[in-house]
Every structure is written in C-alpha cells, then in structure tokens.
Simulated scan of single mutants.
Amino acid sequence: MAPEGTCGDGRCVLRFRTGAFVPGVPVLPVVLSYNKRHHNPAWTIMNEGWHFVRMCCQFDNAVDVEVLPPYVPSEEEKASPTLYAKNVQKLYAKTLSLPTVNQSQEEFSALVKRRVGVSWDGRRVTAPEGVVDCNGFVDLNMSTSKKSH
C-alpha cells in the first residue's frame, strides 16, 4: 500500500492515510527513493503524456528500495490509527532525511480542480489568473467553501 495515497515531488513526506493502520497490526515499511537527475518519475501533478515522454528521455530512472524492520504499534497507536500513521510517516521521513508535511491526496485533488499544474519543463507552477496569490500560495479553502453555498 502507498500510505501517502500518491507520490510527491521528493522534497517532503506527505501525510499518510490511515487505512493500512486501522487494524492496529504491525506493518513492514518499504521506503522508495527516486534517484532523479533532471526529471522525477514519481512527480504526478504534470500532464501524464509529457511526464511519460520526459521519463523515457531520461537515460536512467533508478529507485532505491529500503525495507525497514517491521513496525509494531504501541497500545496507544493501536487505539489511534491517525497517531500510528503519523509515527510511521516520521520514520519514513527520518529514513529519507526529509521533513513531513500535513498535506495529502485531498490537497492535490483540490489543486487539480483549481487547474493548478506544472509547466511543460516541470520547473514552474502554472495556474489560471487569480488562483495563486502574490506570495505564490493557493487558497484551497476557496474551492471547498463554494460547495457549501
């Protein structure tokens, strides 16, 4: 199972979904690390066709796979799948020497709905006029608040 629900850009570890942690049984963490030089094969926010072409043009698309020891949850983690998921997320992040973030697939979907994407070369965020503020941030609450009206 991919606990993030998607692949990120490799600069952080996204929030883990809780589904795999609900049973409260031990998990076997397997950490994937893409060794990208110019193009990240895991970065899925861009146009799929162009993503595939860029991946094929990159001579080497390597991935390191590290199988960690089984993670046995504490009684507190068994009672709280959210805590269990967060602690395993921290373990992944420590293994990869990356920070954790509280974003997940839901935020990704909100970006797609707002037509936020990545330029053809994968170096810039693209968005319709008025979606990104002067600091380069997107208000994801705008799309959810419109649903309630």
Results as ranks from 00 to 15, higher is better:
residue 49 G to Y: 05
residue 30 V to W: 10
residue 48 E to S: 15
residue 144 T to C: 00
residue 112 V to W: 06
residue 110 A to W: 00
residue 135 N to S: 14
residue 28 L to M: 10
residue 69 P to I: 01
residue 106 E to K: 02
residue 5 G to F: 12
residue 120 W to D: 06
residue 95 T to F: 08
residue 72 V to A: 08
residue 102 N to M: 12
residue 2 A to G: 07
residue 100 T to A: 05
residue 97 S to C: 07
residue 76 E to N: 15
residue 54 R to I: 02
residue 54 R to A: 10
residue 11 R to S: 13
residue 5 G to D: 13
residue 142 M to Y: 03
residue 10 G to C: 05
residue 63 V to L: 11
residue 11 R to V: 05
residue 84 Y to L: 03
residue 65 V to S: 05
residue 45 I to V: 14
residue 101 V to Y: 01
residue 121 D to S: 10
residue 9 D to P: 11
residue 49 G to Q: 07
residue 141 N to S: 08
residue 63 V to H: 06
residue 125 V to Q: 02
residue 122 G to F: 07
residue 109 S to G: 12
residue 34 Y to N: 07
residue 45 I to K: 04
residue 38 H to T: 11
residue 62 A to W: 15
residue 140 L to K: 01
residue 39 H to S: 09
residue 76 E to W: 01
residue 102 N to I: 04
residue 71 Y to P: 01
residue 87 N to K: 11
residue 106 E to Y: 03
residue 69 P to F: 06
residue 102 N to L: 10
residue 109 S to W: 05
residue 142 M to R: 08
residue 45 I to E: 09
residue 117 G to T: 02
residue 77 E to M: 04
residue 32 L to G: 04
residue 103 Q to D: 08
residue 130 G to D: 10
residue 43 W to V: 00
residue 10 G to Y: 04
residue 33 S to Q: 12
residue 88 V to T: 07
residue 134 C to W: 15
residue 102 N to W: 05
residue 78 K to P: 00
residue 17 R to N: 15
residue 16 F to P: 01
residue 110 A to H: 00
residue 143 S to Q: 00
residue 131 V to K: 00
residue 75 E to L: 14
residue 13 V to G: 00
residue 34 Y to S: 02
residue 24 G to A: 04
residue 43 W to N: 04
residue 104 S to K: 02
residue 87 N to T: 11
residue 8 G to I: 01
residue 118 V to D: 01
residue 126 T to S: 12
residue 22 V to S: 03
residue 116 V to T: 03
residue 129 E to A: 04
residue 130 G to S: 08
residue 52 F to N: 08
residue 145 S to L: 07
residue 121 D to A: 10
residue 73 P to Q: 03
